[in-house]
Amino acid sequence: MIDPAYVTQILINGVLMGLLYSLVALGLALIFGVMDIINFAHGDFVMLGAYLTFLIATYFLIDPTVTIALTVPLFFLLGIAVYKAIIKPVLGAEPLIQIAVTVGLLMFLRNLALAIFHAEPRGVPYTVFSTPITIGPITIPLSRAAAGAVSLAVLYIVHLLLTRTRWGIAVRATADDREAAALMGINVERVYYTTFGLGTALTALAAALIMTFSRADPYLGLLYGLLSWVIVAMGGLGGVVGVLASGLILGIIESFGMSLISAGARELFLYVTFLVVLWVRPRGLFGRR
């Protein structure tokens, strides 16, 4: 009854999506881990990135993957601007106020997209990664494979940045103890805005990868926003490794659920997993403060 090729296919699909999910959540994990700020608008940066990718790709008639040369630096600056304008005033405020402000940002971004593009999904007409790879009975869309590979590479680069550079040491010191870090001469303010900028820039990168096989629509925000929080909840503050492991687990659960039960119930598997993790392991699978 159980066909090993079919199971392998589902597993590969799950792993590739899981890698991408990890990349989407990485920015949020950084922001939450370092700054202790609750950012509900993370998914809507992904949505915004997807639209920007669509606009640039169709305007210049270039591949969505090339647009990152423009969107990633742009989002880094956007992240810093958002940090200075609305995040900084609520640093250290009650969680409810932080949630309120970032939910406000989320509603603003989502409805700005809705106002400009209406509810129609927008896809890029072509990408170099459109042909599938076939190995025996298993088919892997090249776009998904590329998205998975790039995600893994970026996760590794961020891991190196955090562990091997002066900036990374400053970031980790600030995450551990803000006051002590400041006393050691670390410019905490600079750590904060660069972290928020990097976290936002990563969403633009993820968005470009998503656009190679999916379309931009205003509802992407809620899906990827909740998804990122699910991964952060599971991964806790286990660093890049925790995020990667949680993303993979979620991707595989989702893939099996969609293939064996119903593709339309995608969110069901993600969120039921989320509730169970919150109840059973309130500190996440890899530890959380």
Partner: peptide, 8 residues
């Protein structure tokens, strides 16, 4: 959204 940001 804007109101919420301002209030917050």
């Amino acid at each position: 959204g804007l109101l919420l940001i301002v209030v917050g």
